[in-house]
Write a protein that binds this DNA or RNA. Structure first.
Lengths: 222, 222
DNA sequence: CGAAGGTCTGTAACTAAGTCACCGAGACCG
DNA sequence: CGGTCTCGGTGACTTAGTTACAGACCTTCG
């Protein structure tokens, strides 16, 4: 489950760190691997270390009492679980949960080393605060979108985001509703409307985008 | 606008800091005062220093393109502007803005000193990360409420929060709508419904709570 | 193969929330 | 006193979310 090997090449954002910091990291950190679907952290389950993702993605989401879900953000390979760690460093009990969306490989920096690195390396501080900054800014955007953006616009944005360069999104209507904190029926209606306009085709568990420009126009608040 | 004087008694949460850290703070920090309504920070206006609020409150809010607003959180006396500072330490341009809700007095810790304190004091690190943790956890709750909670429940919660121990809330319907990221008409209707049930009385710019238990019951998702 | 059960999607009727357009009451000020 | 501005009220309408189904499709297993 863990091994000491040189992972530094897989992690571009940390390359600017001075050599002595690197040495500490290589020395004292573990590489952990977890299977798809693992719950990395959740309510009443604080993470024990600061994670740097080497491979895979972690989905961070919130579930309401009534069972509805919303995706807050994703941690991609090359990024850190900074927010989570802040909560680990603080005292507050954490409501969100983190799920491995695929098999993941990560560098686990123990709490003591994390604290030492923060104390000794200006570059490491910069790295951590930048990661914070990005997440918090992104959370603000999530709030704005949930509060003020139309659901069709948000769905178009999300479809393009999830598709990336690929022509199709593999997700059920319920999955998409969970992404946006909406309801399945609402998403079904919107997808059928998009399909009626010829922007995409829907099949069981698959949305195939056929008119990307049209979706992009709507996504940019058209 | 600024002076060197002993503010340490006004700031309980920092009392645990060791004496030498205190000495640095007293030495190199400024006390700033700003009038009510000041814009502390906003889009394209990054704060120059880490703020510890001695008196007053700062309202942090987000405004959409269409002009609708939502209050993200408030910084109270005795707290720090930690999130803002994270964004200042990072690179990302900040979308939210901070407004002084009353005349405020704050300790401004220059960036260089902030960085030095983070590096040298474990207690200061703990203080900053705890502040982070609290804000982020709170942001998660805001997202959950905006996404999933009914507007009448949210309004009841907000009225109780704004009233505190006082019997009345001084705010227009538009103000309350901005608190919740909702629309004025919606809030008016809800207030009138509450009034019809005898839970409160409304006058121009004032909501007077007359049945606190009833509001509290609704607020706890009744 | 064919029945059984689970998952996924469709639909209609309804409620809740937000939008639009307009109005009138009250406060404020010269 | 009259004009102007802020605040709140109202009704018709659109959008989003809820409830309660039904039916289609997929997998599994006898």
């Amino acid at each position: 489950m863990s091994s000491k090997q040189d992972w530094t090449d897989s992690f571009p954002p940390l390359r600017q760190l001075p050599e002595e910091v690197f040495a500490q990291l290589r020395e004292a950190s573990l590489i952990v691997e977890l299977p798809e679907g693992s719950r990395i952290f959740g309510p009443g389950q604080a993470p024990e270390s600061f994670l740097l993702l080497l491979d895979g993605t972690i989905r961070v989401q919130q579930t309401s009492e009534s069972g509805r879900e919303i995706v807050l953000y994703r941690v991609q390979a090359g990024e850190s679980c900074a927010l989570t760690t802040a909560c680990l460093m603080g005292y507050e009990e954490y409501q969100a949960e983190g799920i491995a969306e695929s098999r993941i490989r990560a560098v686990a920096i123990p709490r003591a080393l994390f604290d030492r690195l923060i104390a000794t390396s200006r570059e490491f501080r910069q790295f951590v605060f930048t990661a914070f900054s990005r997440r918090v800014t992104n959370l603000f955007r999530v709030i704005e979108e949930v509060a003020f953006e139309r659901i069709d616009v948000r769905l178009a944005q999300k479809l393009l985001e999830l598709a990336g360069a690929k022509p199709q999104v593999v997700a059920t209507h319920q999955d998409l509703a969970n992404e946006l904190g909406s309801a399945r029926e609402v998403i079904s209606r919107q997808l059928n409307e998009f399909a009626r306009r010829g922007w995409l085709r829907v099949a069981r568990g698959i949305v195939e985008i056929t008119d990307r420009p049209a979706l992009a126009r709507l996504a940019q608040h058209g």
